[in-house]
């Protein structure tokens, strides 16, 4: 039993336990928390952060970080909106450009980290500010509108927003993305090398593996997540406002950390990340069901992050003690 727990990862188990406990807590004290509309809201609130969090999990496992996610997502959505509204691009082409743009910026981040040897924190801090500025520049600081369900190109909402029954489609895409990325991280060489690099980069290099390639790929995967996230964001809100979206990356990173991925690299799991995303989403909706305003969500999320990291530190300490024996 204990061995099994070790295999799955103690923190993942704890995070899952926390998820259940928080859910039960709100089910008891919240108003209508278990209703289907709240459940749909929980799903709806999770997916932008989810796409960002899954992508950045890869980067964090290599020992890096990406601060540009939120700004990039908005910049990509603004770019798509501009192309669609002002440049006469067909919607599908604009959406494709959004994904390609995000992947391209991810690639740039990766190249800055691997080839120019910039610390990931600095490189992506720079990209974040560039994206924030770029979003305003290309739109002349005006909001961009994507088609709603009732307009022409209404297929956009039907494919990416919600079903007629009100089920948020973003959650479906998120689960699909999760499954795909789970396979990539755990069953392919890509994932193996990403874990290996986070564990001991020099050792990987000496084993004759192209470290730069695989590390860059982590940033590209993160860019892909951001690209898909930006489409779903546009479909959900239909209005994209320049100079917003800051801070979403921090929520994503918080979800990753709650899920047990170590910021020092080499350890992590996407299942944990998903649990982290849902913990934050349940917190948000649960506090709303208790009629507490948004700042409480930020406040409690902060406490959860600190708690999660404390557990991680404690776990590492235990592991080190075991090693000494």
């Amino acid at each position: 039993m204990l061995n099994n727990l070790k295999k799955i990862g103690m923190q993942k188990v704890l995070a899952f336990g926390a998820l259940i406990i928080i859910y039960i807590f709100f089910a008891i004290v919240g108003r209508n928390f278990t209703s289907s509309s709240t459940t749909l809201n929980i799903l709806a609130a999770s997916y932008f952060v989810g796409f960002l969090a899954i992508g950045v999990t890869f980067i964090i496992i290599t020992g890096g970080i990406d601060l540009s996610l939120g700004a990039l997502m908005m910049c990509s959505a603004l770019l798509g909106g501009t192309l669609y509204r002002d440049q006469g691009f067909p919607l599908w082409a604009a959406l494709l450009v959004m994904i390609l743009f995000a992947v391209f910026v991810g690639l740039l981040n990766g190249l800055m980290v691997t080839k120019l040897k910039l610390p990931p924190f600095i490189a992506t801090l720079g990209t974040m500010m560039v994206c924030l500025g770029l979003g305003s520049i290309i739109t002349n600081t005006s909001s961009k509108y994507f088609p709603t369900l009732l307009e022409s190109d209404g297929w956009f909402g039907r494919v990416f927003f919600k079903t007629t029954g009100g089920f948020p489609l973003g959650a479906v895409y998120l689960v699909a993305f999760y499954i795909l990325m789970f396979v990539v991280l755990n069953k392919t060489k890509v994932g193996r090398y990403i874990f290996a690099i986070g564990s001991n980069e020099e050792a990987v290099r000496l084993s004759g593996i192209k470290v730069d390639l695989w590390k860059t790929l982590a940033y590209v995967i993160s860019g892909l997540g951001v690209g898909i996230g930006s489409i779903l964001y546009a479909a959900t809100y239909t209005v994209v406002i320049p100079n917003t979206g800051n801070g979403i990356e921090l929520q994503a990173i918080a979800a990753v950390v709650i899920g047990g991925t170590s910021l020092s690299g080499g350890v992590g799991s996407l299942t944990g990340t998903m649990i982290g995303v849902f913990i934050m989403s349940i917190l948000k909706n649960g506090l709303i069901s208790m009629s507490l305003p948004a700042p409480y969500q930020t406040f409690f999320t902060g406490l959860v992050v600190i708690g999660a990291v404390l557990m991680d530190v404690y776990r590492n300490k235990k592991a080190n003690q075991l090693k000494k024996i």
Partner: peptide, 21 residues
Amino acid sequence: MENLTVAQNIFIGRESKGLFL
């Protein structure tokens, strides 16, 4: 690579021909 297993360490870079492990 401390976080990987013994076998994963030994055969790093020589896992298998294809993409999958």
